[in-house]
Design a binder for these strands. Structure first.
Length: 763
RNA sequence: GCGCGCUUAGCUCAGUUGGUAGAGCAUUCCCUUGACGUGGGAAGGGUCGUAGGUUCAAGUCCUACAGCGCGCACCA
């Protein structure tokens, strides 16, 4: 233990002198953190012997995105997790908490691209792949360092010797290994399908990366026009909010039982729609609702997921009329359009929509125009309007049966069973329902992204699409002429491996050495990434290791601003936890985030609350001073108490009243220990606050003043014991919540002999 | 459409397995140089969303409804 900082220039312990001044978190916290870190106790392998007897406790830090700095939500996460880690450590568990950061592929690239565009007016294509990646790496290095320092400032007792990054070499090997294995099992495939295309980010995204926004839109009802051969008006009208996509229609679908349309089923028509020749077949499909619109649906297989699926059922052709920049690739151009207002080709979809409507009106085909509300799909990261496009992409098959440890199963089933069997417990429980609901609606997971930052897909091609010209492997194939796939993987593919890629997997030797930590004991994270991350970790771990990634999931809520808005950069309502720490101290920030906020519940930031806990820190400090000053002549007594002398051996030395106080504290300790085991930190913190202030300080300390002034020797002796007995336990109990100040006081009272972080939790 | 959450003091929220309401902040009054960059004491303020039900007893369990928020699906 480093003594130097605890001594003044004359080599005397200066703790008492510090104790004479008000508590100053700024000069205390960094020094205490350094002491902890130097002790090596953040690493479970280096813990004192006592602290390993309770079995392992392991937890990964949900790696923060390297897009920017942390916000108060991250601070809440770090506070809860550090409480868990410190409690486990004090309970004698071999405690491992692994730090790391997430490359957050799309998000990070978007941030850096935006910055370059703003400052230099250049696009990623101007820079090229290598240069852009260099720029991103530089950005990531900076943000990483900021994030790490924030984690330290909050006092997190995390094992820095095992820090990982989702995009480092070890994690890359894990990713390639997982990909290869899934491919070999037929669970990863390449398919030509309609995917969610983000024209703004120029990449595909998964279903989960879409956000919906309700907007007003016009629903147009019209007929396609006259049949080119017979001149007959195509008899069925359809309704749509996107007339411009109808240039890509290849069928009209009606309900098979709809009497109005039965006679037309199987007929085929040819027409020219807004300058684009189309061929339509009338098909019957039970998914069409007779009651909606005209009861008939124009089928656009290339630009709608639902229509694509319908086209698969009926063997309909696919016709793409919109390109990657969300511009029309078909229809009237400047030359063929009868009027300039009808030009469609080359226009953005929104403008093309107006052109098509203008044309419909001119042709007398438009029957109805009504305003409706509907959801439009936006890319979560870029805000771009999603354009469903047919593309050749890589997918994880969630419904495909495969052989898993001798049993037929699917990935969906594996995900479901991990929770339904109780192997994974979710707190609060209600999220289990949400989880199942998500799984029931799950479709194949599109994992390829057309961005440059991320894990490159471990697939190589030679000219031609023949199977012998495609190579899937952990390492590049030998021989000339192989080109690696340009695409990268969805960032959640690598984070899905996090609980075991951080423990050495796929290196068998290393992973075996860490086997006691997996499945991890606890996964603490925000409920907003239940699907993105928690579900994907369960998928990967169950598939690759045949076991759950963690036993318990504790979901915390979102921290919102005072107007109940989500904290986000675009709103500019982010509060830097560091500012709050400077102002009020890390302990106060932690307490204010934790008290009264149960799992799964969102909370609001409130500076007044942080301030209140700074006052509490000050109160605690002054209780410490009082105890110190009134027990100072009994160094031996102090060390005796702080060596955890059993209370039963002290009972006879307590007066009747003091024994009652001691018993009351024991009762409280038993109570809160039970609540700690149930993860009810929000209650424990409040109870300790209340006890320290309104029982210990307001009652016992006030009463002690009289005793130390006028009491008998027996009473004085008893009271000294009592104060030490209570305060010792209280400091231990408060330590997970307010680690800095409790450590500092504890060192003062034990003359720098003991480190509270590795002291025993006493129920 | 399916599902979830919230509705408790002016504000922000607790309230473990049912036993006649709590905390912080805010407000008012009084006291205090004290271990306290203040602290202590006291006060005011709640038909616990509405209506039923179960029970000796319901903020707490059940049903219905309302308002707000959210997730998923649909979105022709």
């Amino acid at each position: 233990m480093d003594k130097e900082n605890d001594m003044d220039n004359n080599g005397k312990p200066n703790i008492p002198e510090r104790f004479l001044k008000p508590y100053d978190p700024a000069t205390t916290e960094d020094r205490v953190y350094e002491m902890w870190e130097k002790s090596g106790y953040f690493n479970p392998d280096k813990l004192p012997e006592r602290n390993g007897k309770g079995g392992p406790f392991s937890m990964v830090l949900p790696p923060p995105n390297v897009t920017g700095q942390l916000h108060l939500g991250s601070a809440l996460m770090l506070a809860i997790e550090d409480i868990m880690a410190r409690y486990a450590r004090m309970k004698g568990k071999k405690t491992l908490w692994i730090p790391g950061t997430d490359h957050a592929a799309i998000a990070t690239q978007a941030v850096v691209e935006k910055e370059i565009q703003k400052k230099e007016g250049k696009s990623r294509h101007d820079l090229g792949r290598d240069e852009l990646l260099r720029r991103i790496d530089a950005h990531v290095k900076t943000t990483h360092d900021v994030i790490v320092s924030q984690i330290r400032k909050l006092g997190c007792s995390i094992d820095w010797s095992r820090e990982a990054f989702t995009l480092d070499d070890k994690r890359n090997l894990a990713v390639r290994t997982a990909f290869k294995r899934m491919y070999d099992d037929g669970l990863i495939y390449r398919g030509f399908r309609v995917v969610n295309w983000d024209p703004k980010g120029q990449t595909t995204i998964s279903d989960d990366e879409i956000e919906y926004e309700t907007r007003k839109a016009k629903l147009y009802t019209f007929k396609y026009g006259k049949d080119a051969k017979t001149g007959e008006l195509i008899p069925i009208a359809i309704s749509t909010t996107r007339p411009e996509t109808k240039l890509g229609d290849t069928a009209i679908a009606v309900n098979p039982d709809d009497a109005r349309y039965k006679p037309f089923i199987s007929r085929e028509f040819d027409a020219v729609f807004a300058g684009e020749p189309i061929h339509l077949k009338i098909v019957a499909d039970p998914s069409v609702e007779p009651g909606f619109g005209t009861g008939a649906l124009g089928v656009t297989p290339a630009h709608s997921m639902i229509d694509w699926e319908m086209a698969q059922r009926h063997g309909l052709p696919l016709k793409q009329v919109i390109g990657e920049y969300a511009r029309m690739t078909a229809g009237f151009d400047e030359h063929s359009a009868p009027a300039p207002a009808f030009v469609v080709k080359g226009k953005k979809v929104a403008e093309a929509r107006e052109a098509v409507v203008a044309w419909l009106k001119a042709e007398g085909l438009l029957e109805k125009e009504e305003e409706i509300e509907h959801n439009i799909a936006l890319a979560q990261r870029t805000g771009g309007v999603i354009e469903p496009l047919p593309k050749l992409q890589w997918f994880v098959a969630v419904n495909k049966e495969f052989d898993h440890n001798g049993q037929k199963t699917t990935l969906k089933k594996l995900m479901k069973e991990a929770v339904s069997s109780g192997a994974v417990k979710i707190i609060p429980e209600r999220f289990e329902k949400v989880y199942f609901n998500w799984i029931d609606n799950l479709r194949d997971w599109c994992i390829s992204r057309q961005i440059w930052y991320g894990h490159r897909i471990p697939v190589w091609y030679r000219e031609g699409e023949a199977p012998e010209n495609i190579f899937i492997g952990i390492d590049a194939p030998e021989g000339d002429g192989w080109m690696q796939d340009d695409d990268t993987l969805d960032t959640w593919f690598s984070s899905g491996l996090w609980t075991f890629s951080t423990l050495g997997w796929p290196d068998e030797k290393e992973f075996k050495a860490n086997k006691e930590y997996h499945p991890t004991t606890m996964l603490e994270t925000g409920w907003d990434i239940l699907f993105f991350w928690v579900a994907r970790m369960i998928l990967m771990s169950e598939y690759l290791l045949g076991e759950a990634p963690f036993k318990t999931v504790y979901l915390h809520g979102l921290v919102r601003d005072t107007k109940n808005r989500k904290i986000s950069k675009s709103l500019g309502n982010n509060i830097d936890p560091l500012d709050m720490i400077v102002k009020y101290g890390a302990d106060a920030v932690r307490m204010s985030l934790v008290v009264g906020v149960g799992p799964g519940n969102d909370s609001k930031i409130d500076e007044a609350k942080i301030k209140a806990y700074k006052l509490f820190a000050n109160k605690l400090w002054n209780i410490g001073r009082f105890v110190f000053e009134n027990t100072g002549d009994g160094e031996d007594l102090r060390s005796a108490i702080f060596d955890l002398r059993p209370k039963s051996s002290m009972d006879s030395e307590f007066t009747k009243k003091d024994k009652e106080y001691a018993d009351r504290l024991d009762e409280l300790m038993a109570e809160i220990t039970g609540e700690m085991d149930e993860y009810k930190f929000y209650i424990v913190a409040e109870k300790l606050y209340h006890y320290a202030w309104h029982e210990l300080a307001d009652v016992i300390l006030e009463e002690s003043k009289g005793i130390f002034r006028d009491g008998s020797e027996i009473e004085k002796k008893s009271r000294r014991r009592l104060l030490l007995y209570i305060f010792d336990k209280l400091l231990r109990a408060l330590h997970p919540f307010m680690p800095y100040i409790t450590e500092e006081i504890y060192r003062a009272l034990t003359s720098g002999q003991k480190m509270l972080m590795v002291e025993e939790w006493v129920a």
